[in-house]
Amino acid sequence: MKVSVIVPIYNVEIFISRCAQSLMEQTLTDVEYIFVDDATPDNSIKVLQGVINQYPDKKNQCRIIHHKQNLGLPVARNTGLAVAQGEYIFHCDSDDFVEPGMLEQLYHKAIETDADIVWCDWWLSFAKNERYMKQPEYPTGMEALKGMLSGVMKYNVWNKLIRRSLYEENGITFPAGYGMGEDMTIMRLFARASKVAYQPKAFYHYMQQNNGAFCKTFSEKHLSDVRHNVSMVTEDLKNLFGNALDTELAFFKLDVKFPFLISDDPAKYNLWKNWYPEANQYILKNKRLSLRSRCVQWLAWKNQFWAVWLYYKLVYRIVYGIIYH
């Protein structure tokens, strides 16, 4: 197989049909589709099987693996990785959908450049609108890693085609039991990539509608998960590169806690103050990040949370809440 597509499934009954159809209509041949049922309580699997039956020529390329109990998103990804046979791995979340030429174009780019990882642009999709999310281009895996740590390139799992041997030869899996921030694992793969490539086109539609998905809630467990995954990445990169990435790791910690400022909740402002205070001195040094983002963080550092609150109300509530919604 050229590509193995891994799709974790949990509580996506109203989304899985569109996702599965978009995968069945991929123009690339020699693709295996691994759907991992993470003990979903709804009718997602029944809907999925109905879609697969509509594509009899693809039926033999599809496999559904069932977990007896809900084990979480990282374990579902690992279940798929354990049985995947493709030269490359692609992760697709079950409430999203993709363009028909995605796998073909990403795979051809990988073969053409002998890349371990290929990434592309993507669509941030709302109920009625979409926003094109352009990604930067980097010549090496290290430069891409620095871009992700600095917050200018997304380390999401779902817009990247990754050579399967990169996982296997380095013993890299997703952090079982630590679902929030599990996609930070992608940075560990970039740190080990010999060659990387960028395809400047959006194929993936990341949906902002599913409130029942894996990562739409907020709890002490989720906060603990994020901190665990930050520590995992930090320790791994320090083992590989020593102190060479200390500045970028400070930028990374600032990026991780930045979402606490996209709120009008004083409790989240307190979280921002308490998380990684040692990184605050690097706020204005991250020239890769927009001046606007640096200013918001600087205001928080100086306890000017009235200005942070105003920024949230004016920019996020109006621009994203009304215009893009």
Rank of each mutant, 00 (worst) to 15 (best):
S4P: 09
D183L: 02
P56Q: 05
Q21A: 15
H108W: 15
E169N: 04
D246Y: 05
V308T: 15
Y155I: 00
V31N: 00
E99M: 05
V308Q: 15
Q54T: 15
Q21K: 00
I322E: 12
Y204R: 00
V51G: 07
V5C: 10
H205G: 13
E112C: 11
V226W: 01
H91T: 03
Y324M: 08
D116F: 14
D264H: 09
W306V: 07
N274K: 13
V51E: 02
P136F: 11
L223T: 00
Y324H: 11
G321V: 01
E137K: 02
Q297D: 11
T113A: 14
D30C: 04
R164N: 15
Q304P: 14
K268D: 12
T27G: 11
Q69C: 08
E25I: 14
T234N: 06
Q49G: 05
V98F: 13
R188M: 08
S219Y: 01
S125G: 04
L245D: 06
Y324L: 12
T234H: 06
K313F: 09
Y276C: 02
C295H: 14
H222E: 09
A20R: 00
V31P: 01
C19N: 01
D95A: 15
R163F: 04
F252N: 11
W123M: 15
F15Y: 10
W119K: 00
S263C: 05
Q61G: 02
K257I: 00
V230Y: 12
F251W: 01
E130Q: 10
P74T: 00
V256G: 11
N70T: 02
Y276N: 03
P56M: 02
F126S: 08
N286L: 13
A176D: 12
A110C: 05
E112D: 08
P175I: 02
V31K: 00
M153D: 10
G80T: 01
I186V: 12
T140H: 03
P175Q: 01
M142T: 10
I45E: 05
V226C: 11
I34P: 10
F214V: 12
K268F: 05
S165D: 15
P100G: 14
C19M: 03
Y204G: 04
A110V: 08
W119E: 03
P139C: 02
V256I: 03
I9H: 08
M142A: 09
V226R: 14
A300T: 02
G151E: 10
N229W: 03
L189T: 00
S125H: 07
M184C: 12
E25K: 00
P266T: 08
K154V: 03
K257M: 03
H205K: 02
N210R: 06
E112K: 06
L254N: 09
L48D: 01
L299S: 10
K146S: 02
K285T: 14
N211L: 07
Q208I: 06
K273F: 03
N43V: 10
W119L: 04
L149T: 10
G242K: 10
L261C: 07
Q209H: 08
L261A: 09
R192T: 12
E112L: 11
D95C: 14
E143Y: 05
Y276P: 09
F203I: 11
I162V: 12
T27K: 07
A267H: 04
M184G: 14
Y324Q: 07
K160N: 13
I318W: 15
I117T: 14
Q61Y: 01
Y269M: 09
